[in-house]
Design a protein around this nucleic acid. Structure first.
Length: 217
DNA sequence: AAAACGATCTACT
DNA sequence: GTAGATCGTTTTG
């Protein structure tokens, strides 16, 4: 099968649009050890404007410089001694990939994670980064070359896709009221509590109607 | 030099 | 549900 990564144009759109459309796409990592891949089931958007939780909000520095660059590049940061993977969309904005449904290279993921529990392999941003061996050295990589790290369209399905759900972001301490977390309904591989993912979430169409123009609360 | 701070995770009630 | 671990980076004295 030829590798057909999502092109740069896919990422060169508003960050919330990309965050939603990434649900169902496949994140693939090819390393010396082998190929690992999973279906994206949870994302968060970090805005270029009016979002104090975005790393770009403090201005450019050595760690966050990738966020100020071209769309379609990996932005990897360290927190609590762990790594988290984002993709840059329009400048100063990025999508944090928070959870995957593991699809390929399960044994390799399990070895890297130190657990056999399928649900624990990629549920949470630092967990999926560890499972796919995405480290700080991946920061700034272009995701469009299809060499070591890229995104692919999801498998075609006959079943009509249910719309995604929207909630507040997890773990952020500022701008915590913004509704910028998106997840696939009923997936076992989404992080967060059951309450947040059901009662605490809105239907996408409802959110879209509320979100007239730049108001993401 | 010490303390505080996270876009987190795990283990344990 | 929540306390504690974790560690690189930034802030404070």
């Amino acid at each position: 099968m030829p590798v057909t990564p999502l092109p740069a144009e896919f990422f060169d759109r508003h960050v919330t649009q990309v965050a939603v459309e990434l649900l169902g796409k496949i994140l693939v990592r090819r390393s010396r050890e082998g190929v690992t891949a999973g279906r994206i089931v949870e994302t968060e958007a970090y805005l270029a404007q009016a979002d104090t939780a975005a790393h770009s909000a403090v201005g450019i520095n050595r760690k966050n410089a990738t966020m100020f660059g071209a769309p379609g590049h990996a932005y990897v940061y360290t927190i609590h001694a762990r790594q988290c993977f984002n993709v840059v969309t329009q400048p100063r904005s990025a999508v944090l990939v928070r959870a995957l449904e593991p699809l390929q290279g399960l044994d390799l993921m399990a070895a890297r994670r130190g657990t056999q529990v399928l649900r624990d392999l990629c549920r949470g941003p630092a967990r999926l980064a560890e499972a796919l061996d995405i480290g700080r050295e991946c920061d700034g990589w272009a995701l469009t070359s299809g060499r070591r790290l890229w995104m692919e369209p999801g498998a075609e399905t006959d079943a009509p896709q249910r719309e995604c759900l929207v909630s507040t972001r997890i773990g952020v301490t500022s701008a915590h009221k913004l509704l910028l977390r998106f997840h696939t309904p009923d997936s076992l591989f989404v992080s967060g509590t059951k309450t947040l993912n059901t009662k605490g979430s809105y239907a996408f169409s409802q959110w879209q109607r509320r979100t007239k123009k730049g108001d993401f609360t």
